[in-house]
Design a protein around this nucleic acid. Structure first.
Lengths: 237, 237
DNA sequence: ACCATAGGTGTACGCCGTACACCCGTCAAG
DNA sequence: CTTGACGGGTGTACGGCGTACACCTATGGT
């Protein structure tokens, strides 16, 4: 009854005001749970109890919002460790990036598409790449080898190495899925591999594969290769 | 004047009838020139001189159309060479895939998103992966090592290793692009690397980098690593 | 007491994918 | 020769999208 507002009996929750941070936060949350396709300005606004156009007072447009979301999640990657040899430093950083990406599976696609559209990655990504180069440099890598190294790391640098057979447990058994016999007949090598990996001969692709182990295996292989190169270059200038 | 049609003087170009192949072909062409965002059912129909809904008599919906486009472009990858050691066989195939992807830059994104949505890659991709495994197998790789190998190849298997700094020559000099000084201040390592790569000290990121060489360098590094592993496993069972 | 301004609202436009009813030319069966 | 089913192109319409633009209102400096 204190305020002279027209609506007398509205409890009038102060409704914490909008802000770029709040918008980006709920956008990331929505994308985390529904995928990036389920993300629309209208839905974000609804989740915030606000009208869609209100968002535009804080973000220029949807693309700019996606850029902001990238910066948010890339900011979650652990900072470089310091006082550690280059290999463990890179390893830690990349594995931290991978953990972030497991939390935000939409991120690789958004990063890639936005980078393509902007010609330059978003600032947070730039910073991440920059510090990664820094680790190599202070590990004694000559600059050209760092250049090669960044290319070798490739998609692993931002953690995503498109697992073509992802293990999505919660998925109803597609009625017109291929029966195992036909699967084995058409794709004998895939089937053989899948059976060899999963000891259970019933299961087909994507069941008994330890993604984490595979990721680290591939990562360590390239890292060892790079280290060998580095030593060879150092001993025979 | 022969036909009793109501429209007497229409030249009545027989207008080659629609077909799934024709639709997929123009869809691929449109995506090639305008990117996948510029691809809409309405635009495809327009390019074919037909009403949008006509397409649905030949493709179930847009997702099914995207699947078809994937199969078209994956079908452009050269078939396995035969009678060649595993390393050159893999090398040829992957480089052929890369050439295809340079023709169809939208493909990686579509393949990835469709694979995620379908849980199993499209048939053409399956076939590609299967034959790739076959090459490793007949090269003497034990099955578990093939499993690792497929993971190590990772994104390179389908050619795309998201080049974060892509060289897009035709792009107007963004009015609010970062000036070189600020660039160098904020991202010293990136700038140093870029300058070392491009002999011309004026150019910044993404100018003097031979993508093809980098791609082959990374590819050969992982291949050599795999071969070493293979030999070690063979000599010490 | 005033009014500029920041921030939330409402309406509207043009695009998208696609459901559904329709219509017409072809062709096999009667 | 008639008929009727059917494959394939059409027209209309719906709901959702991003967002331009005009508007309203509470706040705070003068």
């Amino acid at each position: 009854m204190v305020e002279t507002s027209t609506q007398a009996d509205a409890p009038a929750q102060p409704r914490t005001p909008l802000s770029r941070e709040r918008i980006l936060g709920t956008a990331v949350a929505l994308a985390d749970e529904g995928g990036v396709d389920a993300l629309s300005m209208r839905r974000i606004a609804q989740a915030l109890g606000v009208v869609p156009m209100a968002l535009y007072k804080h973000v220029a447009n949807k693309n700019e919002l996606l850029d902001g979301m990238i910066d948010v999640v890339v900011g979650e990657i652990d900072p470089p460790a310091g006082h550690a040899d280059w290999k463990t430093a890179v390893r830690r950083r990349v594995l931290s990036a991978r953990r972030m990406l497991l939390r935000h599976p939409w991120a690789p696609g958004v990063i890639e598409s936005r980078t393509k559209a902007r010609a330059t990655p978003t600032p947070a990504v730039m910073e991440y790449l920059d510090s990664m180069i820094g680790i190599f440099r202070s590990g004694g890598f000559p600059i050209d080898l760092v250049h090669h190294a960044m290319h070798v790391m490739g998609s692993r640098l931002l953690g995503f190495s498109q697992e073509l057979f992802e293990d999505t447990p919660g998925r109803e058994p597609d009625p017109d899925a291929m029966p195992p016999e036909e699967m084995a007949a058409r794709y004998p090598h895939i089937t053989a591999l899948a059976r060899a990996v999963a000891h259970d001969p019933e299961s087909v692709v994507g069941s008994g594969c330890d993604d984490q182990f595979e990721f680290e295996f591939a990562l360590d292989l390239t890292l060892d290769g790079l280290e060998r190169l580095r030593l060879r270059l150092r001993d025979t200038p």
